[in-house]
């Protein structure tokens, strides 16, 4: 049976707090409800090499990235390509700003990342800042999903219902 684009994929649902934000992981904080007894710290992975085997859309040569937290108290981090100079993204844990954000990880992405459970994932979204308008938005349609153990990641392209540009509820 051919796999059509219209075909449904079995869901693995990502929602607060089942998926870990990367900040939680980096800082080794526990979730407010302490739901994750196995919440390992990511301190050892801070600055570790993250593998995006297929690159990301538009930057296919960028296979290795690094996630850094320039300011300990900041809500934002930097996802920096180690393969292409001048390629870095400001990112954030989407649930900090959009607590109702929910998506189903397509089965193919789940398989490629070998993710068994949402709590094994690190999820961040790219932020674009319009300094003139003092606004910023998050790309909720294409979150970066990482396996916290293997540090393999993908920029997952979700369906059309997720906003490509979700304005952050803050003034920049």
């Amino acid at each position: 049976m051919p796999r059509g684009l219209d075909g449904a994929t079995p869901p693995l649902r990502y929602a607060w707090p089942s998926a870990r934000g990367h900040r939680t992981a980096i800082d080794g904080e526990t979730m407010p409800d302490a739901a994750h007894g196995d919440a390992s710290t990511m301190e050892a992975h801070h600055d570790a090499v993250l593998s995006f085997d297929e690159g990301i859309p538009g930057f296919r040569e960028s296979r290795r990235f690094r996630l850094t937290q320039p300011h300990a108290e900041s809500a934002f981090q930097v996802l920096e390509s180690l393969d292409e100079d001048g390629v870095a993204l400001l990112v954030t844990e989407p649930w900090l700003f959009f607590p109702d954000y929910t998506f189903d990880l397509p089965e193919g992405d789940r398989e490629a990342l070998a993710l068994e459970r949402p709590e094994d994932a690190i999820v961040v979204c790219a932020i674009t800042v319009d300094g003139t308008a003092r606004t910023a938005w998050a790309n909720l349609r294409a979150p970066f999903v990482l396996n916290a153990q293997s540090l393999r990641g993908r920029q997952v392209v979700l369906d059309d219902e997720q906003p490509l540009r979700a304005t952050l509820p803050i003034e920049w």
């Binding site: 538009g58 108290e73 900041s74 809500a75 930097v78 790219a126 674009t128 790309n139 540009r165 920049w172």
Partner: peptide, 27 residues
Amino acid sequence: QIVRENAGAVTSADAARKLAEQGPGAG
């Protein structure tokens, strides 16, 4: 669309660091 959004979001590592340091939520 994702290619375009990524192209619009990508900046230099230095600029991204500055944004992360100075943006709302910092300090």
